[in-house]
Structure formats: structure tokens, C-alpha cells
Design a protein around this nucleic acid. Structure first.
Length: 420
RNA sequence: GGGGAGGUCGCAUAGCCAGGUCGAGUGCGGUGGUUUGCUAAACCACUACAGCGGGUUAUUCCGCUGUCGCGGGUUCGAAUCCCGCCCUCCCCGCCA
């Protein structure tokens, strides 16, 4: 159901949803605009019906022409009012978040998320160094020069550090391909329309980089591209579920989090991510949420890193999600759980905005698909977890067994191999 | 960047140059039916979507409006004329 349908249908329910998400929207104003728009349309259509009738069949008399000139003027007047009301209505509706699944735990922010699973943090037997210190000493992470090149919150990987990340990307994509996902390599630059479809616009607006001249935007994740792939399409039932995996760079301005996580590479303006998106039948989306969460967990587990899975509460759910889980890896030096993936069931929300449908049977009515996304997973935090869990006291880094085949068999990065 | 062609109902096309029952013809595909031992073929019918209103509210139904890449304009009336934009194809140039 689209936002306006939901509001007409049960404004109280929408109000509850807004409160649960700690969001605000002028529902009264929206209902008023909706009413105005409908009335104006009704009046306009009556006039148009009269005009169509008169112009059917051939040249009308001068008297009729004169009358129709009047009708035309009236239509133009209504069009003006309609444009004003409709644009305000449309704009306001874009700011209505998705519904909330009834099972979602209520809560204010991430502190109220519910732990579903939590491994024991690994102990190293010595005091682990933070990833930035460890990585720079080993010569595989160069934050200073990244900053020199591009500013704060940028970094460069060096030598085996760069190779490790590249290996992780390939390995993670291969895991998804083995699960039946199709790899996509989409542009990392996109259009306004695509971002409106995935609902990154308008509410994520201030976190996005853009080029004003050409109205092109840098993607904050591959999600808008993997959703937008099927914009304005009716998907063949036999091709569902559509499972996609993509690697892209991701760009975020992070103006909202200025001052937070400033050290290291936990929160940066540009990072790499492997992302999954599934378009499926509505009845299958709960199952896919679980499955995609498992696929994110799989990555962390195969790297033999401690895993935590939490279910996001109402206040931390995000604009587009009905329900979602976060997957974290433990960082022993950071002494915190690092969010490496966020899995969301967006239901029909993005499919409605992107006009993506399917038919259950030939000639049947087209229904919106359900769309889900999950990171599979984000690289910087995975790199942090590896640097912190696999460091040795002598300053060398062990390479997790799972990615060794992707690094020509390399099992460690020795001290002295690389230097900044 | 310069020049040319073009974007029409799932696909392919007609209609545009001479504006008026053109929301739109034809072929293919699809759906239903007739015929048939079965299949094929043939024949017949149907075959976009959205919004609003009415009847029913389980499905079916009726009326109106809009949509011929998108947005404007001209006109009593636009798929058809004019302007802007987007996209595709071809040729030339330039850069990789």
C-alpha cells in the first residue's frame, strides 16, 4: 500500500508508526491536500468530458467554439491550482516512512536493539593495538596519505592490505554466486530518479554527494542501483526471486555524524561494499530476510570472527525497512561490536516507488514485488575486525584461512614486508 | 563536439508531411472458445495502464478522465503542428 492509501485508510496507524520511528509528518495537511486534489481533478475531468464530447466528430459551430474557449480557460485555471496542491502533496508523501512489521521490538535507538545471537569475544592473550596503529605500523594502511589526497575520513590501503581487501571482495561475491545470486557491476553514479525509487531521496539527501550541474549523484550503497535495475518493469514470475550481488564503492558525506568515530577507518566518506538485493514474491520476503542475514553471518563466521546478530528496534529501523537485522563482528581493540552488515525487508515500499511488479498469472493483475537488501558485507569494518583479531604480538598479521586461496596462498603479512 | 535518422498499445510495424469518432490499424506472440481421437493447423473472440465516480462488495460490470519518450505551447480539438529536454541508432571528428 502506498503512503497516501495507508494514510486515507488508517491515519491513526500511520501516526503510531511515525511515533515509533520518532518521525514527524503533517498528516492532517496531507489529508487536506488529498481532498483538494481530488476535488480539483473531479472538476477538471467534468470540463474535459464536455470538451471531448463537443470536439468529437468534426468542426463545431462558432457558438460551441466560444463556449469551449471558456472551458479551456477554466481548465487552465484549475491546472494551476492543481499543480500547486499536487506538488506539495507529492513532496510530503515522499517523507512518509515504511510501515513497521508487528514483530519489531519497540525502542528508541540502537541501544534498544535485541540481541539474537552473540559469540564470545576472542581474547588474544596480549593487549591488541587499534587497527589504525597496527595497520600503519605494518605498512598496509595509510591514513595520513589518504587524508593528504582527499581530506579527512579518507585512507589508502597499501601492499598486502590492498590485496587483502580485493581478495575479500572477490571471495564474498563468489559466496553469493554459489547461493544463486547474479553478480552485477552497476555504475556508482546514479540519477535522482533512481534514488527516489529506493527512497534514499529525499530523506538521505544530506548524506549524499552530488553534481549539481548534471544532477548526478554518487551512490551511498549499491542498493539504489540493484533496486532501480527493474524500475518500471513487470517481472516474469518464473524469474523470481531475482537475487543480485554487487560490489561498488559507496560515498557518504557523514555530515550528521561529524566528530563521531574520527579515528581510523570505521566511518569514512568512501568505502567498498558487497551488497545483496532480492526482488521476490510478497509471501517469501520474511524467509529472505532470514536467509540474507545468514549470508552476512556466513562471511564473518568463515573468517572465524566473533559474530553478533541484533534485531533493530522501531527507533533504529531505518526509513525503508519493515523489519531488519544487523550483523556485527567483534573488534577486540576497539572493544566494540562493529556493524558490518544491515539486512532489511523493505516489503513493497521500494517496489511501489520504483514501479516494480509481477503477475501471478497471465492476464492477472500486476502486484508489487517485495525487495530486501543486505550488505554482504562492508569492507572497512571487516578489515578492522581482521586487523584486530588476527594481529600477532610481534606486529605481523595472520591471514584468515578462508581468503588465503584468494591471496595466492599467503598466510601472513610479516613485519618489514611493507612500510609507509 | 559536428551532421543525419528515430522513439506509437508484450514484440514488430502503420498512422504524422494535408490536426477531427485514432486509445490508435495490421502481423506476431498471449488468453479463452469452436472444430478435432490427441497434437498441429484453421476459424472466432479477447488481448495496456492509472486515477475518479457509480453498481456489487467474492468475482464480474458501467461511466468519465489521463497516458502514442518526457515537459510545455498553438488550437474548439494534437500521436499528428511548434519549442525545450531525455534516450537510441548511423556517419565524421576527438580522447582513451
Amino acid at each position: 500500500m502506498t503512503p497516501i492509501q495507508r494514510i486515507r485508510d488508517d491515519p491513526g496507524k500511520v501516526r503510531e508508526m511515525l511515533a515509533a520511528r520518532d518521525f514527524d509528518a503533517p498528516l492532517e495537511r496531507i489529508l487536506e491536500l488529498d481532498k483538494v486534489v481530488r476535488e480539483l481533478k473531479a472538476r477538471k475531468e467534468t470540463l474535459q468530458a464536455e470538451r471531448n464530447k463537443a470536439s468529437r466528430g468534426g468542426p463545431p459551430s462558432e457558438a460551441v467554439k466560444a463556449r469551449m474557449r471558456e472551458v479551456g480557460d477554466q481548465v487552465r485555471t484549475i491546472d494551476g491550482e492543481l499543480a500547486t496542491a499536487e506538488s506539495e502533496l507529492d513532496e510530503r508523501l515522499l517523507w512518509i516512512p515504511n510501515e513497521i512489521h508487528p514483530k519489531v521490538p519497540r525502542g528508541k535507538d540502537e541501544h534498544d536493539n535485541v540481541v539474537v545471537r552473540q559469540d564470545k569475544p576472542k581474547t588474544l592473550g596480549f593487549e591488541p593495538k587499534p587497527h589504525w596503529e597496527f595497520g600503519e605500523r605494518l605498512g598496509i594502511l595509510d591514513i595520513q596519505r589518504g587524508t593528504k589526497l582527499s581530506g579527512s575520513r579518507f585512507y589508502a590501503l597499501r601492499g598486502a592490505g590492498a590485496a587483502l581487501q580485493r581478495a575479500l571482495i572477490t571471495w564474498m561475491i563468489d559466496l553469493k554466486i554459489a547461493e544463486g545470486f547474479t553478480e552485477i557491476y552497476p555504475p556508482s553514479v546514479t540519477k535522482r530518479e533512481t534514488l527516489l525509487g529506493s527512497a534514499h531521496l529525499p530523506h538521505f539527501d544530506e548524506n549524499l554527494y552530488r553534481d549539481e550541474d548534471d544532477d548526478v549523484w554518487l551512490v551511498p550503497t549499491a542498493e539504489p542501483q540493484l533496486v532501480g535495475l527493474h524500475r518500471d518493469e513487470i517481472l516474469d514470475l518464473a524469474t523470481l526471486p531475482r537475487r543480485y550481488v554487487a560490489f561498488t564503492p559507496c560515498y557518504r558525506r557523514e555530515h550528521m555524524s561529524a566528530g563521531r568515530d574520527v579515528r581510523g577507518i570505521k566511518r569514512v566518506h568512501w568505502f567498498d561494499k558487497v551488497e545483496m538485493v532480492v526482488h521476490c514474491l510478497p509471501e517469501d520476503s520474511p524467509k529472505w530476510l532470514d536467509r540474507m542475514t545468514e549470508l552476512a553471518v556466513e562471511v564473518v563466521e568463515k573468517l572465524e570472527l566473533p559474530v553478533r546478530v541484533t534485531e533493530r528496534c522501531t527507533g533504529d529501523l531505518g526509513f525503508t525497512a519493515l523489519r531488519g537485522f544487523d550483523v556485527d563482528a567483534w573488534g577486540p581493540a576497539a572493544n566494540e561490536w562493529l556493524e558490518v552488515s544491515s539486512a532489511s525487508n523493505c516489503g513493497s515500499f521500494q517496489a511501489e516507488r520504483s514501479n516494480i511488479r509481477f503477475r501471478r498469472e497471465a492476464g492477472g493483475k500486476a502486484e508489487h514485488v517485495h525487495i530486501l537488501n543486505a550488505s554482504g558485507v562492508a569492507l572497512p569494518r571487516l578489515m578492522i575486525a581482521i586487523l584486530e583479531n588476527y594481529q600477532h604480538e610481534d606486529g605481523s598479521l595472520e591471514i584468515p584461512k578462508a581468503v588465503r586461496p584468494y591471496l595466492g596462498g599467503r598466510d601472513c603479512v610479516r613485519v618489514g614486508e611493507f612500510s609507509l
